[in-house]
Design a binder for these strands. Structure first.
Length: 549
RNA sequence: UGGUCGAUGGUGUAAUGGUAACACAACGGUUUUUGGUGCCGUUUUUCUAGGUUCGAGUCCUAGUCGACCAACCA
């Protein structure tokens, strides 16, 4: 409720005014994806906006698939879109399809023809383009523009009945070929496509264009506020014109700026290329900015909603820092993730004064941010794995970790002091030797010793192995589509680093998909769907902030 | 080189003619058995030029810069 104090974005402002002035008693919005790709971060903004609006204000939101182009649309996409919206935490009032309205839309077209607002045109695609004119010169009328209403009616019906080949005829709105808005120069509203549609099958061989489907679908559903991105601004004039001539419910279109996020691309066309050309594993590759990719990467629904909330809604060009997204997911994961220990790049640590063959179980907290999550016991023994980078042969100043003669605490265990280390013939450190202080045990420390650093570890005899996928940004430049040449030339070659033999504490053998973990001092990780019983695979969601390096 | 929409710290968003603010980032301090988290603090803002007004980020005019618009895509 304190949310109400925060200021409204410009769309909420409009709605708030519409409600106050009693223009509407409640509102209806819609999220209108085309099922020709997976949902991405850009869609998340639109989803949060459209569904969020009807949480803030009285009303409801429909899910409507804009499926008017049978050649690019598939049910696989429909299913993924529904799953992603639900996973994000939203519920639609009705599930609709533009294709549900094909009969109505056909009748609308007939009505337009009846009233002399549309005609069948025999011009080819090229000819129409040539006669359209451009920004500075007006277009010229099609020679078919003055066909009689009767002829148009029978021709349009013949189009519907499959009497013509693809591309040989179109239905065009009769507006004004010298209109300053190019979209108003007799736009095509129906085209012939002998193609199988994912829902209507082979019933139709003519399909309405976007401009003759979207606004009409809005109207049919009594959408009060039809929200889209700014590239549709020029369409609004046509949107209003068609609704007026058709004399149907006057839905209104409002536009906001699409969000751009640095070091990635959010364009279905480009994402499809990455998938088809195998630059990534698929639509749900954890490097993809798709909802499914982010889910697999370990992002939480809350973090994505929070991100959308924080970047807000605007009308200007923008480039949002991906760092904010990472902040949002850390904020959530810090609260909910279970702390565990895993050693990614191991080096052996031998505790010389710990009895050979002895083991003990030490208590450690599951989540210091939430004591209610309790504790668990972890095995400890003479030989441990620790992180290679936690030992320095030549420590820099302010080095808190292990080095010859230095003391550190093994997390939830004992304080140790490094007494020696071994190298192989190539000069690589292969083992660290330390002594431990038995009275420094975590929770009952009477040693009086102080260790500046704390490091994580796993007991060698008890550890399991795992594969770790370390992810980095997909592109090496902030705005790949702004660069000269192919955006794919700017893919980060190190966007994925695979570690085959990491050591994880035994607890992690029970990890399930959907569990969120913090690998202590490293980052947040989730189990990947390609894991097997023998080799669990963990994906890095995002690293912990690191003030050291 | 026509039309449309925009321009507030490094980034995103507020301020609805009346003290330019919030968040992220950056930097410093503090706490800490995660160099994490938390807490405290610091740096950095109204595109330009005119005008209206007691008062302009906000209104007006002109300019500059940016985005979008000539698919039988959505």
């Amino acid at each position: 409720m304190s949310e109400k104090e925060s200021s409204l974005n410009f769309i909420e402002e409009i709605i708030s005014n519409d409600l106050e002035s009693k223009k509407y008693e409640s509102i209806i919005t819609r999220f209108p994806p085309e099922p020709n790709g997976y949902l991405h971060l850009g869609h998340a903004s639109s989803i949060c906006l459209n569904f969020g609006l009807t949480k803030t204000f009285p009303g409801s939101t429909n899910l409507r698939f804009d499926d008017t182009n049978p050649t690019t649309e598939e049910t696989e996409y429909v299913e993924s879109i529904k799953k992603d919206i639900q996973w994000l935490g939203f519920e639609w009032k009705n599930e609709f399809y533009a294709s549900d309205y094909f009969d109505t839309l056909y009748d609308y077209a007939v009505k337009l023809i009846h009233n002399n607002y549309a005609y069948v045109c025999d011009l080819t695609s090229d000819e129409i383009a040539n006669q359209k004119g451009n920004h500075t010169t007006p277009g010229v009328n099609s020679p078919y523009r003055n066909r009689s209403i009767e002829e148009n009616l029978s021709l349009f019906e013949a189009m519907k009945n499959g009497k013509f080949e693809d591309g040989t005829k179109t239905l065009r709105a009769k507006i004004d070929m010298s209109h300053p808005n190019l979209l108003m120069r007799d736009p095509i509203i129906y085209r012939i496509k002998h193609a199988h549609h994912h829902r209507t099958g082979n019933k139709w061989c003519i399909y309405p264009m976007y401009d003759f489907a979207h606004g009409q679908s809005d109207s049919i559903e009594n959408i009060t506020h039809s929200i889209c991105t700014m590239e549709f601004i020029p369409h609004r004039e046509l949107y209003d014109w068609l609704i007026e001539k058709l004399e149907i419910y006057p839905s209104k279109q409002y536009e906001f700026a699409r969000r751009n996020i640095n070091y990635t691309v959010t364009s279905k066309r480009k994402l499809l290329q990455l998938v088809n050309e195998k630059f990534v594993e698929g639509w749900d590759d954890p490097r993809m900015p798709t909802i499914s990719g982010m889910r697999r990467r370990g992002y939480t629904p809350w973090s994505i909603r929070e991100f959308c909330k924080r970047i807000g809604i605007g009308k200007r060009e923008n480039m949002v820092d991906v760092g904010l997204l990472e902040f949002c997911v850390r904020e959530d994961l810090n609260k909910i993730s279970k702390r565990v220990m895993a050693v990614l790049e191991p080096i052996k640590l031998t505790i010389e004064n710990y009895p050979e063959g002895q083991e003990e179980f030490l208590t450690t907290e599951n989540n210091p941010e939430n004591p209610e999550e309790g504790t668990r016991n972890i095995p400890f023994s003479k030989t441990l794995w620790i992180e290679r980078e936690d030992f320095a042969e030549f420590p820099e100043k302010k080095w808190f970790r292990l080095a010859l003669g230095a003391m550190v605490r093994l997390k939830s265990a004992y304080i140790i002091e490094c007494t020696d280390f071994k190298k192989d013939n190539d000069g690589n450190v292969i083992e660290v030797i330390a002594k431990y202080f038995p009275d420094s045990k975590s929770g009952s420390d009477t040693s009086g010793l102080k260790a500046k650093g704390v490091i994580h570890w796993v007991s060698a005899a008890h550890a399991k192995t795992a594969q770790i996928n370390l992810y980095d940004r997909l592109f090496r430049v902030e705005d790949p589509s702004q660069e000269e040449g192919d955006f794919k030339d700017f893919i980060n070659p190190n966007s994925l680093t695979v570690i085959q033999n990491a050591y994880i504490e035994p607890e992690l053998a029970h990890a399930k998909i959907g569990d969120y973990f913090q690998f202590l001092r490293k980052g947040y990780f989730v189990l990947d769907k390609n894991s097997s019983i023998d080799t669990p695979i963990f994906n890095l969601t995002v690293g912990l902030k690191d003030n050291w390096k």
